[in-house]
Design a protein around this nucleic acid. Structure first.
Lengths: 221, 221
DNA sequence: AAGAAAACGGAAAGACGGTTCCACTTCGCT
DNA sequence: AGCGAAGTGGAACCGTCTTTCCGTTTTCTT
């Protein structure tokens, strides 16, 4: 008779139901832990949050990279979507500014995302693919604003990406107003022409904010 | 007779000659290692470079902070001096721009300096003093440029400090041209008025540069 | 319902880096 | 030169994080 499971040579065997459930739990836990502590958070922390044993995490994701890849594919999707949305804004400058603000905020809120976008190309295959999906979207956003004559013509998509990364590191997760301030400042540098400076948010930085540029979150033990 | 060593109650006993020599070797080694790897470099790496045993480092500097303090007092002096020099520039804008460029470069070349300036206030007493010496100098530089009407009036000294820190992290030690690019961009945001954008250095960032924002130097094992 | 296979948990083993400690050396003094 | 104190080096220790392993549990199939 015909077997119920046709011999699909590419079939990676479906996971058992409990395994599938745990896989989802692990991914959710990793999302939370990596966002808070960065990509080098301990595997047992992930396991603890997921409510499974460490061994389970290792069996499902033998290398740290596997977990990272599975996790951030969707986060990259979100960034790409936001970039496309911004590029479609009828006011190109508004779209660009909104993306810069949003991107900085996203990186500040999620250390793991920041690290994975940066590390793209160094190793992880699928993460690099994600970055390659991202680049055209940002390029389009930049080109759009340049064709409208509002963004200076001598910057590229990677300039914008670097600016997002730079600003995202300022002030720690709590000090969004401070990032607003630097976003406004950089935007004043990015525009083609302006007479007076755009007013900055009136929050003056404190000494402590500076430390955040270098040590975003001290792992609380 | 009068004793050769008067009972100075604050006298911390002079070090033996070999101890003094090793102290100097350790400081020189720490300067090198911290600049390359940051403040959390291993003590045994410092000991190896200095050509002494680990125990020697620990006896002379029981806490990591002691070593940091002894080391960076002089580096802070250099920054203060540069800020004062910049404030005395007959062209205030030129002085400000030069300081921003120089500061970013100094931090990029010396991870330890970057971290110690940032961490000031969290702990280390004398490092905090250093930062407090630095702040007025930068404030003066900023005020000077503002009184000349070339720097936007709504930024403070700490904005400039944060900008230096931000830009210093871009591109890794090797990519100074890239930092030039961002310095020019931020300066265009900082000035009071400009018509056309100041031309940027024509170096386009590469994908790898982005990684440097987050992982400036991978310790080579 | 029963047997076989997959998956689980968490203890144990391993790798790694920071810190301590003490037998030995070097220095300074008489 | 000889003695005591200060200083030294690096092996051993300790805590932390990673990875493996295996006795038990859960699921799937018939």
């Amino acid at each position: 008779m015909s077997s119920v499971t046709p011999d699909d040579p590419a079939a990676p065997r479906p996971l058992r139901r409990d395994a599938e459930r745990n896989r989802a739990l692990i991914l959710a836990a990793a999302r939370e832990v990596f966002a808070a502590q960065g990509l080098d958070a301990g595997f047992d922390e992930v396991a603890r949050v997921a409510g499974v044993g460490v061994g389970t995490v290792y069996r499902r994701f033998p290398e740290r990279g596997d977990l990272v890849e599975a996790l951030f594919q969707e986060e990259v999707d979100a960034v790409v979507a936001r970039a496309q949305e911004a590029a479609a804004d009828p006011d190109p400058w508004h779209g660009l500014a909104g993306f810069l603000r949003w991107g900085a905020e996203a990186q500040a809120a999620d250390r793991g995302l920041a690290q994975v976008l940066a590390a793209a190309g160094h190793g992880h295959e699928r993460v690099a693919q994600g970055r390659d999906r991202l680049a055209p979207a940002v390029d389009a956003l930049v080109r759009h604003a340049q064709e409208a004559g509002v963004l200076r013509p001598d910057v590229g998509g990677l300039d914008l990406g670097l600016a997002v990364a730079m600003i995202g590191r300022v002030g720690g997760p709590e000090r969004a107003e401070l990032r607003e301030r630097f976003t406004a400042l950089v935007l004043d540098g990015l525009c083609v022409r302006r007479d007076a400076p755009t007013p900055l948010p009136p929050v003056l930085p404190t000494e402590e904010d500076m430390a955040q540029v270098f040590e975003p979150v001290r792992r609380p033990r």
